[in-house]
């Protein structure tokens, strides 16, 4: 069993949902990311998702776009993010997921990139511009390198595609809660709860379901878990803390830890 799958079953036994915390690698600098990941882990995140900044992040809204720009301006390279993953794994032992766009993997050779990732302690990959239709050769390589291939489902996903996704995804299935791009929203999108229930019909007994996009508040975490999801993914909310406090590192780390801990509390007793 992969470390990610194992984490989900541990949490299920404790009747907790998984809190998956996204951190943009290299934002505001690669050095700062090490301590941000520490803060996220201390706050109680169950799984860490590390972003590799990309020049053309089409699935991301303004918060993560800006984080990517900061990371790239700080000179962050894919290898730097894998180095952060390695350290985080050694220190916290948490499952680590790499999130990036396909061109980053493709340009260095998918096999090469995945081998390097595995050696850096990475457990799974999220590639938002790689739909299940294109995933074939890529998931073979991922399996060879003992990496989970986490696929995304969306509000537009048809029943047939849901079936396909539930059987091709590994680790968990990432459900995009809304029509649109990543980013914090005031409230959960209307229809998000029924979307979770719809997806759940296809994932139940097969693979854990985690919900992301537009989830940044404890009550939103609670709502998607109560609707039946096994996990919640928070990205822009954390990135926004970095943006707000990046000039005061100590404060930034304290705020992130506090924020993550409030999200984690919401995931307890609602799994």
């Amino acid at each position: 069993m992969s470390l990610i799958a194992d984490k989900f079953s541990q949490l299920a036994r404790r009747e907790e949902g998984a809190l998956i915390a996204y951190v943009m690698g290299g934002d505001p600098t690669p050095e700062d990311t090490y301590s941000i990941v520490d803060a996220v882990a201390k706050g109680g995140a169950d799984i860490v998702e590390l972003g590799i900044p990309f020049s053309d992040p089409i699935a991301d809204g303004t918060s993560i776009q800006a984080a990517g720009v900061r990371a790239l301006s700080a000179g962050t390279r894919p290898g730097d993010v894998l180095e952060i993953a390695k350290k985080a794994k050694e220190k916290h032992g948490l499952p680590i997921i790499i999130m990036s766009y396909f061109n980053i993997l493709f340009s260095q050779g998918v096999d090469n990139f995945m081998r390097h990732s595995r050696e850096s302690g990475v457990d799974g990959m999220i590639v938002p511009d790689l739909p299940v239709d294109e995933v074939g050769p890529y998931s073979v390589t991922a399996r060879k390198n003992a990496l989970d291939t986490i696929l995304l489902a969306a509000p537009t996903t048809t029943p047939n595609r849901m079936k396909l996704l539930a059987s091709h995804s590994s680790g968990f299935l990432y459900l995009v809660s809304l029509m649109g791009v990543t980013g914090a929203r005031e409230s959960l999108q209307a229809g998000a709860v029924s979307l979770v229930k719809y997806a759940k019909k296809y994932t139940r007994g097969k693979i854990p379901l985690a919900v992301g996009f537009g989830i940044s508040k404890p009550e939103q975490v609670k709502a998607v878990l109560e609707a039946g999801a096994e996990g919640a993914i928070v990205g822009s909310g954390i990135v926004n803390q970095v943006q707000s406090y990046k000039d005061d590192t100590e404060r930034m780390l304290a705020e992130i830890e506090r924020y993550v801990s409030s999200l984690k509390s919401a995931s307890k007793g609602s799994g």
Binding site: L152, T156, G180
Partner: peptide
């Protein structure tokens, strides 16, 4: 070629 786009766009 191909279709390297988010799942949300696939049905479209």
């Amino acid at each position: 070629g191909g279709q390297f786009i988010p799942e949300t766009l696939m049905p479209a």
